[in-house]
Amino acid sequence: MNRKERQEARADRYRELAIKSSVESDVACRQSSEMASIIPMGQPIHGLADRKYREKIGAKMDKSIELSRKAEYFKQKAAAAESNDAVYLGDDDAVERLESKLADLEKKQETMKETNKIIRSKKLSDIEKHDRLIELGYSENGVREAFTPNSMGEIGFPSCSITNNGANIRRVKCQLEKAMQMKVTEDKEYKIGNVRVVENYQENRLQLFFPGKPDENVRTQLKHNGFRWSRFNGCWQSYLKRWQIDRAKEIIGG
């Protein structure tokens, strides 16, 4: 199972939890309503038993509200898991997705620069500017927005937008180079004491396979240093970094 499949499985699990909480919320609400229905409208409280019964009605309704909020929380988690389009170096399709992302950013950069060149030109008429923008791929609404001044009274893309997009291009290029290098780098496997260490370049993970459950002190150190237990791989793992390898050796050796 790759990361994308695990992401989809996580979204499905959150949806199931959302449905379960929603059903339980409806049940608690219905029970509260049924319990309240036997009390005549406006009837005052009669004795301790009556008070406790009404408290149970309130508790049922509070539970229904809490479960409803829980259902909404899991719905949001499912939506977030589905919409997460971040590219991780260990993804099977990391190179392809980064290449696509880079192409989109470069196209955006060219479009912003050409747009500014057109709408700020003193040699072109407004009609010519309009036609050039349409040729560039703008819709009529897009053309109108391009000529709408921003909060600073300027038209076109501000220089900071172009600068920030250029920084994103350089960042993605760096990621792409790393992803391409990782795809051709062979994994390394060795032992430190009785712990099997795997430098998994295909998944960008440093993996520690202990022969059994490590003691509490070691687990604490692992967690504090970015390692997490992977039930799927049956090991403690973190992102594959040079300093992380050195830290793992210190923890295991200690």
Rank of each mutant, 00 (worst) to 15 (best):
M1S: 01
R3P: 08
K4W: 06
K4Q: 11
K4L: 06
Q7C: 11
Q7Y: 12
E8I: 02
A9W: 11
R15N: 12
R15S: 07
E16D: 09
I19L: 14
I19M: 12
S22E: 14
D26E: 15
Q31E: 13
E34V: 07
M35P: 09
S37A: 01
I38A: 04
P40N: 02
Q43L: 10
Q43K: 05
G47V: 08
L48P: 02
A49C: 08
A49T: 10
Y53A: 02
A59E: 09
K60S: 02
K60W: 06
M61V: 08
D62L: 02
D62V: 05
R69T: 00
K70M: 03
K70C: 04
E72W: 15
Y73P: 02
K75I: 14
A86T: 12
D92M: 08
D92F: 03
D92T: 11
A94E: 11
V95W: 07
V95A: 10
L98I: 14
E99H: 06
E99W: 15
S100L: 13
S100H: 09
A103P: 09
A103Y: 10
K108N: 08
Q109D: 15
E110G: 10
E114N: 04
L124V: 06
S125E: 01
D126K: 05
D126I: 00
I127E: 14
H130N: 00
L133Y: 01
E140L: 04
A146R: 04
M152E: 15
E154Q: 14
E154H: 01
S161K: 09
N165G: 00
G166R: 12
R170W: 13
C174A: 10
Q175L: 11
L176R: 00
E177T: 12
E177K: 08
M180K: 13
Q181K: 11
K183E: 13
V184P: 02
V184S: 08
I192Y: 04
I192R: 08
G193K: 07
R196E: 14
V197T: 07
V197H: 14
N204Y: 05
R205A: 01
F209D: 02
F210G: 09
P211Y: 07
P214Y: 03
E216R: 14
V218N: 06
N225R: 08
F227S: 09
F232N: 06
G234S: 01
Y239S: 04
Y239M: 08
R242I: 14
Q244F: 03
I245S: 03
D246E: 14
D246K: 11
R247Y: 06
E250L: 13
G254W: 05
